[in-house]
Each structure stands twice: as C-alpha cells, then as structure tokens.
Design a protein around this nucleic acid. Structure first.
Lengths: 238, 238
DNA sequence: GTTAATTGGGCTAGTGTCAGACCATTGAGA
DNA sequence: TCTCAATGGTCTGACACTAGCCCAATTAAC
C-alpha cells in the first residue's frame, strides 16, 4: 500500500565528513554566515553539529582548500568566510542545470513549492505577535534596500524567515534544505532590474497576505512568486 | 540574517543503529510492511538503507526483542512483522502526548500541516494521467472499505499516495516523516463511527479538488481534514 | 614587554561501522 | 528422500569517528 521505497530510503546521505561539508556549504551559500564573518569556534561548532572536532576540522580544511574559508589561528582567529556568490552568466546557468539531474531538479522544485507555500499558509493562519510582524517587515525592508551583492542572501533570509516564524524547526529545516537544493541555480540566474521589481511586488503581496491572515492569498502569492523561477529553470529541461 | 541555528543543526540524528531502528519502526508503523508480511532479505535491505548488514542485524535484533518482528531462518524465512497497532484508549492518548514534548508536538503538527497541504496543492496543480487518477481512486476506495484493524494503515497509505504522486521523492519523504511523528498519537485516538464518516467526506473532497485541478480547494480540504485531529491533540497541551 | 585568554593544530586510545567471506538452517521441488 | 537455492548467523580485518588531552599561535589588555 505505502510504497516501501518512500520509507526504506538510505538512512544516511554519506559519511560524517561529506555531510558536514554539505552543511557548512549550506550555511555559507544561504548566507547564514556572510562574507567576512566567521564560523563559531571549532569546539562550539562541533557540538552544534553533533560531530567530533576531528571530523569538523577535516571538513573545514576541505572548504579552505576549495577557497570558501580563510582559517586564522590565535585569539580572535577562526574560520572566516571568503566566498562571494559568483556573478551569473548564461553559461553558468546551463552548466548548473546539467550538473544536476533533470529528475533531481524537478524533484527539488516541487519540494520547494510545496514547503514554502505550506509555510506561508500556516503563518498566515497564525495569530502573529507585534514582534513577529516587525521581524518579517524588517527582513522585507532589508531585502528592498539590498545592493546586487547582497540580494540573494537577503532574499533567502526573507524566505526562510517565513518558515522560522511558524515556530516549527522541522519546517524551517525543510525550507532551508529545499532552498539549498536550488541555490546554485538561483545564483546562476542573471538578475535583471525588471525581475527584481517584479519580485519586490510579489514579496510585498506575500507579507500583506500573511499580515491580513489570509492563508489562500498567501499561498497564491508564494506560488506565483516561485513559479517564475521554476518556469525559467524548467525551460532548460527540454 | 538567516538564523544560524536553522542550518547549523546536528548533522546526524543519532548513530547508524538508532537511525536504522527508527526507520524500520517507521516502515512498520506506517504500514509499508503490514502485519504478517516480511521485510526484504537482510542483504537487500542493507543496500536499500545504505548501511552494513551488521548494523542492520543489530537493529532487527532490537525490534525482535521489542516484539515487533519474528525472525525465521532458512529459505522462505525472513523478518516477519508481528506488530499490530494497539487499540486506542483515552489513557493511551494522554500518555502519548506527554511522552512527546509539547514543543515537539506543536512542531510536528505544524510541519505536517504545511507539507501535506503543500503536497495536495502541488498535485492539484498538476496534469494527472489516467493511471495516476486510478491509483489515487483505488487508495480512497480501499480506505473506505477498510475494517477497524486496517483503517490507520490505509489512511496513511492514502495520504502518502498524494505526496508520492507529485513525483517528488523529497516531498514524499517529508510527508512520511511528518506522519510518523504524529503516528503514535493518531493510533491512540479512539475512532468513532462519526469521525470515520466525517473523515470519509473530507477525503472525498480532497480527491475531488485534486481531480478538478483546483489547488485552493485541495489545500482547504486537506487543511480542514488535518485541523480536526490537530485541534484534538492540541487540546491536551493546555 | 608581559600576560592571559582564546583559538586553531595535532596526537592517541577506544569504539562504531563497514565489506566480504563463510557457516547453518529451512523447505519447495526433483 | 535428496538437492539446492535462499535466507539468517557469525567472524575478521580495515577504516571512520569519537572523546579527551595537550601544544602552538595570536592579540587585547595590563
């Protein structure tokens, strides 16, 4: 009845080292730790990630070799983020799409659509405190004021903020995961001024619907917003 | 900007043994492998789960000791499911709710609401083939014909079928995960004939909305359906 | 300068996990 | 009755991962 393959899927995505690299890359690419900022100290970070310092250090070393981090010793040292999102070019997008399997891409887009729409709905159906409204408003204002170098990071922060405000860490994690899976593709999409203005209007609509407590409108707003990029990416599949 | 705790969460939920036990319990409790059926052979199952046979066997042994499995050797042997969902009682529900943290419960309910609504929306927005429609219809018919012992399992199968039909394995996995997290609670809820009839009407509404290609209606139908049990469970939090 | 606190760097002993091979048991079919 | 394929049961050597400890480097504060 229930497809066993849905539940009897691999228990682990890889070894601890690989998963740690992925997670740190997630933190960097999503902008949880921005360029010039540093990761928490190794001992603290290892505890957060639930792994040993040895394994964490291997992962940090790999990211250092790959040019994402600059590690400095001594007091006030640490692992500083050097990564800055590459400027998009049309070739980069095509390459990014073909790097990912088309099946995986479709899977990720569907997943993202479902969880982000779901999060917006749930949030719209929730009674928000003044502080929560202020947080969301702030994220939107920051995004609207963003320069080209910051746009992706603040866009991600805005979207994840919606999920985090639902109060469900499971949901927030799912949205972060979904966003990471399409993150490289989003970074490869050239940002035209028209698109940014269009996106800004849609972001405004999302917040308005959430503040109005209208789950249907919130869902529609997020859906339309995501459908734009999804359609663009899907165009590369044919 | 992005809450680092969302992305710097533990890399692994536990060791391989613990995660395997969880996963097998999921398969059993969700009814992917029903009472009297057997799990795939150890070698095959270990490959599916991406772990070694040694670790898998430890997990199977634990479930055997806990009374969920009956392991038989020789050709046509295997690990047979002996678990049958307990008949609900009011005490069981209160106990199940208090076993789970109230924060975790709220988290799980929110997550479930988001991903299941999201899945239904996405599916309703999809052009379905005749075969897909037939599959969903079949699951609903089976559920409507279910006896008391089969109801939970077929209910789960129906709900997960929606997620699986979206074609996104990520989404299907998320729904399976969400359902498992509230699974023990659902099992502990007494099923009254009134509730079953009510649920049947809602299931029908969900399928109708999906077949009609109306994402808004699908979302609302799922939302109303889940809100019933969510409200009941939330009642125990106060 | 000197100090002290903080941080990365490195080592070791012990445990978890794996891949692969081989043994033991069962029962359908010849 | 015998055979043999399928399946669980067990062992071993290798590698991954961990906890805990101490060393090395850096810099603000004195």
């Amino acid at each position: 009845m229930v497809n066993p393959l849905t539940v009897l899927r691999p228990v682990r995505a890889g070894n601890a080292f690989e998963e740690t690299v992925e997670r740190l890359l997630q933190a960097i690419k999503l902008g949880a730790v921005g360029p010039g900022e540093k990761l928490p100290p190794e001992r603290e970070l290892a505890a957060l990630l639930g792994i040993s310092r040895v394994t964490l250090r291997e992962a940090i070393r790999a990211l250092q070799d790959a040019g994402f981090l600059d590690v400095r010793r001594g007091r006030y040292g640490g692992a500083f983020v050097t990564y800055v999102p590459p400027r998009p070019g049309t070739g980069a997008l095509r390459r990014a799409v073909t790097d990912m399997g088309t099946a995986d891409l479709s899977d990720a887009l569907t997943f993202r659509m479902a969880v982000e729409c779901g999060a917006a709905e749930v949030l719209a159906a929730t009674e928000l405190t003044a502080a929560q409204r202020a947080t969301l408003r702030t994220r939107l204002d920051e995004l609207n004021a963003a320069g080209p170098g910051d746009y992706r990071r603040l866009d991600t922060a805005f979207h994840l903020c919606i999920a985090e405000l639902t109060g469900s860490s499971l949901l927030a994690a799912a949205c972060a995961d979904a966003r990471l899976r399409v993150g490289d593709l989003l970074n490869a999409i050239p940002m035209l001024q028209v698109n940014i203005e269009h996106a800004a209007a849609q972001h405004e609509a999302i917040v308005t619907a959430i503040f109005a407590g209208d789950p249907g409108a919130a869902r529609r707003a997020v859906s339309e917003h995501l459908e734009g990029t999804a359609a663009l990416l899907r165009g590369f599949l044919s």
